[in-house]
Design a binder for these strands. Sequence first.
DNA 1: CGCAACGTTGATTTGCATCAACCGTTGTGG
DNA 2: CCACAACGGTTGATGCAAATCAACGTTGCG
Lengths: 214, 214
Amino acid sequence: MPLFATLSVDDRQRVAEAAFTRRYERGEHVFQPGDQPGLYIVHVGRVKVYRLPESGTEQLIRILGPGEFLGEAAVLGDIPVDHFAVALDRTEVCSIDRRSILDVLAERPTVAVTMLQTVSHRLSEAEQMVSSLTGRSVEQRLVGELLRLAHESGSAQFQLPSTKKDLASYLGTTAETLSRRLSSLQDTGAIRLGPGRFVEILDEQALRSGALSG
Amino acid sequence: MPLFATLSVDDRQRVAEAAFTRRYERGEHVFQPGDQPGLYIVHVGRVKVYRLPESGTEQLIRILGPGEFLGEAAVLGDIPVDHFAVALDRTEVCSIDRRSILDVLAERPTVAVTMLQTVSHRLSEAEQMVSSLTGRSVEQRLVGELLRLAHESGSAQFQLPSTKKDLASYLGTTAETLSRRLSSLQDTGAIRLGPGRFVEILDEQALRSGALSG
DNA sequence: CGCAACGTTGATTTGCATCAACCGTTGTGG
DNA sequence: CCACAACGGTTGATGCAAATCAACGTTGCG
């Protein structure tokens, strides 16, 4: 969902006027809880957004690539930032403070509508995830994600986009359980695991049917 | 989050021009999967939005009261409706077709920004829920909800806003488990269950501490 | 009155988290 | 350049929260 690719040149220029760009090294935080609310737009690289509950393990919210934005909840709700955002690569992010982005939105309805579309889409995905977490097993969620990744890459062979630890967190499970489920899918012959994060879907039917029953 | 209460009179009038109002009886559906996308604004009564997964039980998404809107995902994403919306009471809802609401949004930035704020807030809640489903027990989620309801009603005594079945669905559990957890909270003396949906919080400290450990 | 939906309690099963040990890789500083 | 730490990943053993299946009581509505 690269937001800014879909904006008109004119709108993009207006947004750029309000923004200022910064580079981040891998592992450096773009923002943390307590920071001033701001809207951030990824230019180059990837940014991981996550939550760190009081007593619990890191919860991955999403990973953003070029053209995508983050930090809108704090800006729009005028509430304290309560997420972490960390650069996964050497990254270029432009940031816009609350006042400025509100000005842009008031002035450019198309920017507001585009953001609205993106956030609405994210909400749908989050609701899907809530359904999945209560109604489907880890294996079913994993299969869904593998099929999605294959579809996205346009091939039965692809690389997992993040560490298995992060993928596990994203799927609402642990690294151990994810590892077991991947192995068991490989044992049934539905997929093949290569070196690193390589995955190949060998039998989509088997994968899907497993997703229904298992 | 009553959206339309926060709009200016002028904006509200513009929206009203694009809308047409209909009454629904209790149990009547406002929309169903396959219907034309449209934005719906609740005027009177309550509307329940839920999903019905292929092989699974009803998943409650949210219950909307006066001033709140629904159906935005299908309108904005231009995708088929995939939720159900049913009137919980005798209800008055006004609906706006896709074309008309997009016109309004393009013309009235404040309407778009207001919707954006609401959707963004819902997204935060959904992300919270995802965290809760993976990181917290049913009892902890239940306690959180009870405290929220008490806070909302401004009193330690209140009525559950929906059936226990719906509450269970909303909390991502089953009616049986919810019943057990409520009983056990009563046994510890943290709450008292009255007739119907009455609940009284007797010992907030006990409730909170249980929510941390249990 | 009688049917449906709601609600409760009990018995049983199970998916998954947790704890723990271990291996390969990466990167870092002495 | 090697040693060692840190991290990612896998595998095994164990315990438990919660789903499921089942039976029954309760409420409310046509």
